Amino acid sequence: MGHPVNVGVVGCGFIFTQYCQSIERLPELRLTAVADLDLERAREAVRPYAGVDVLSVAELMADPRIDVVLNLTIPAAHAEIALQAIAAGKDIYCEKPLAATATDAARVLRAAADAGVRVGCAPDTVLGTGTQTARKAIDDGLIGRPVAATATMMTPGHESWHPHPDFYYAPGGGPLLDMGPYYITSLVTLLGPVTTVIGAAGRTRAKRTIGSGPRRGEEIPVLVDTHVTGVLTHASGALSTLVMSFEGAATSAPNIEVHGERGSLVVPDPNHFDGPVLLARVGEEGWRTLPATAGYVEAGRGVGLADLATTPAGQESRAGGALGYHVLDVMESLLSSAHSGTAVTIASTCERPRPVALPPAER
């Protein structure tokens, strides 16, 4: 575009610093202003960043300097803030999920289309060298036609370390909606969109005990499923088995494996941008580590925002709104299937995101 895109951030919570560290390193972006319900928190958050204005949300939306709004509010406020930005004629990039519900996410996309502005959505971790190298291995035919994948996230729950874990166990929380966006976004990046799902889910305890901080020992109610599993059928014909759980002490299973007719891949943790990609091929002994062959190098949270800023008009960015909506639709449908006991057809779809080439200097 020839000049940095001016970014206005709404929400100065924990993840704000991670985004700002990336924005400082990305020449495509300039941090211009921030807003938060707690103005003192906003002032403290931008103290390390010179020349950044602290505004009210209304002031930020009305500021003609702001090109794109980075929405780092809580999920329940994602749609409201996105719709305000769209009404102000600004592009919007949301931390995951795109909205609290697929219905609200659809409203955001419709409003953006009517206004002629663009929507992006985290996670952008899949744009790093980890998932992108695995994707290139698939596209290059190293495992033959993909037929299956597994995706596993197993922890005992966040109450052991988080001082205020209530929202993880309230509606809109749980292991699927908390961590599922990373895993399902990676599966769609690797194998394409999902057409049907069938799931099962449950919970073992009615209460959880906070293990750290000033509320240590306090019991909180569990109002959501804490173990969710299911099978995702991709439009390509591949089947992905998903396990998202707050019910296990640990697991030795890889975060993601992809199996093809001629080989298998171990894909790095989709919550990170990089990591080793392992390949085993039929007729060869053991696993070998692939060199990084694709993806943004040394990426951090915010690279998806930069990708949005540099994507030509009329073209969907790699971490685009259609992908974020599809992933949310898949998760809601999986929970619906788990509760009904029947398969659910996914109403939405999206294009498999464009690959990220390795920069010439890294090849």
Rank of each mutant, 00 (worst) to 15 (best):
G2P: 02
H3T: 15
V5E: 13
V5Y: 04
N6W: 08
V7L: 06
G13T: 04
I15T: 15
Q18N: 07
Q21T: 10
S22W: 08
I23H: 06
L26R: 10
L26W: 09
L29N: 05
T32E: 07
V34S: 02
D36A: 13
E40Q: 15
R41C: 10
Y49N: 07
A50N: 04
L55Y: 09
S56A: 06
A58Q: 14
V68N: 07
P75Y: 05
A77S: 13
E80H: 13
L83I: 00
Q84E: 02
I86G: 11
A88N: 10
A100E: 09
A100S: 11
R107G: 13
V108K: 05
D114I: 08
G128L: 01
G128Q: 08
T133M: 02
T133E: 00
A134W: 06
R135G: 11
K136R: 15
A137C: 07
I138R: 00
G141K: 02
L142A: 12
I143R: 14
P146W: 13
A149F: 10
T150E: 05
H158F: 15
P165N: 01
L176H: 08
Y183F: 15
I184Y: 06
L190H: 11
T196L: 13
G199S: 11
I210H: 04
G213D: 06
G217F: 02
I220S: 07
P221L: 01
V228L: 00
V228K: 05
T229S: 10
L232M: 10
T233M: 04
S236M: 03
L239P: 00
T241P: 00
T241H: 14
V243E: 12
E247S: 13
A250K: 10
N255Q: 14
N255D: 08
N255R: 10
I256L: 06
E257P: 09
S264Q: 13
V266W: 11
V267Y: 04
D269Y: 11
V277F: 00
L279P: 03
G283M: 00
R288F: 13
T289N: 10
A299I: 09
G302H: 07
L308D: 15
Q315I: 14
A319N: 06
G320W: 11
G321C: 15
D329L: 03
V330P: 01
M331V: 03
E332D: 06
S336W: 06
S337H: 09
A338N: 08
S340E: 05
T345D: 01
I346A: 05
S348C: 01
S348D: 00
R354G: 08
P359D: 07
A361N: 05
